[in-house]
């Protein structure tokens, strides 16, 4: 009995120590999540007293042309940006895994874009680089190449934004690098004895060796990509870019919440996004289970 009491006391101290974190998670995450779920069944417009309107917000989505546009753009973005970023991160990780002098410094430098990553300053930098008379086109012009309007043309705008994402490859790269370090050197030595070339080693040792990191990266980056917001919001002044070709899902739901004040509808859009992300994650998980077997 005495022991039990002391343990409870210890728990209490523990809870009070993590209280700041608990307060944060309950007030700024859990409560808003619950709140938005409730709001998604109302006609709340920021100013009125919310009225319960059943699933009307959800059924409205299916008749909303712009909703389909946002979903199309978002999936396109995910399919472009995620594989490109993963590939790029892997390449850089392979280079940084070489045993060179001063490689630690390079590793640090290459991680910097990810630290700056989601900041507004980088979005503004991107805009300055890629506008029609920006630095990139000036550079191209010096080679005699006529640059396009990378942000102003509906053909290229989404790619330009994807490129920004790819540039923030640092966190995936670090995960890959950790994976590469874990592959036992003996495997490579044994393969070399058997006469395997560089390519054969890469395909049969490196790739299987980093598969767990690969699936982790793909999953995390996909989830993040669905929620892309800050950079395109800044670059296109909170709008959907040329012909709404960069109308990413989160920008669309932000517009409904804070431009048109359809908070109810916007909440429903958020929950639909959750379903989309969860669905995609489940598919990825299933594919990984089906085709990868870590234990062998």
């Amino acid at each position: 009995m005495r022991r039990k009491k002391r343990k409870n006391g210890a728990n209490l101290i523990g809870y009070s120590l993590i209280a700041p974190w608990l307060i944060g998670i309950f007030c700024f995450q859990l409560w808003p999540i619950i709140h938005s779920f409730l709001m998604s069944f109302t006609d709340y417009n920021l100013l009125n007293t919310p009225q319960f309107i059943g699933a009307a917000n959800y059924s409205k989505m299916f008749q909303d042309e712009n909703f389909y546009q946002a979903v199309r753009v978002t999936f396109k973005y995910v399919f472009i940006a995620v594989p490109a970023k993963i590939l790029f991160a892997l390449c850089i990780a392979l280079i940084l895994n070489l045993k060179l002098k001063g490689i630690g410094i390079y590793r640090t430098i290459y991680y910097i874009p990810s630290i700056l990553g989601s900041s507004i300053a980088v979005a503004i930098l991107w805009k300055a680089l890629f506008v029609k008379d920006g630095a990139i086109n000036a550079l191209l012009a010096s080679f005699g190449i006529q640059g396009a309007s990378w942000l102003g043309s509906p053909k290229y705008a989404l790619f330009t934004i994807s490129l920004l994402t790819v540039w923030q490859f640092g966190s995936s790269m670090v995960v890959f690098l950790a994976g590469l370090k874990q592959i036992p050197m003996e495997l490579y030595e044994a393969a070399a004895v058997d006469g395997a070339g560089r390519w054969a080693k890469f395909i049969h040792i490196t790739i299987p060796g980093i598969m767990p990191m690969m699936s982790f990266n793909v999953l995390m980056q996909t989830i993040n990509a669905f929620q892309m917001f800050a950079a395109p919001y800044t670059i296109f002044n909170g709008r959907g870019g040329p012909l709404n070709s960069v109308m990413l899902y989160v920008i669309y739901l932000y517009q409904h919440a804070f431009k048109y004040f359809n908070v109810g509808y916007s909440s429903a859009l958020s929950w639909a996004l959750l379903v989309m992300i969860a669905g995609t994650a489940l598919i990825l998980h299933f594919l990984q289970k089906r085709f990868l077997n870590y234990d062998d």
Binding site: K132, S149, L151, G152, N237, G241, P242, V246
Partner: peptide, 10 residues
């Protein structure tokens, strides 16, 4: 032309 201004005008 539009591609000079759309998304770049504030």
């Amino acid at each position: 032309p539009l591609d000079m201004t759309v998304g770049q005008e504030s």
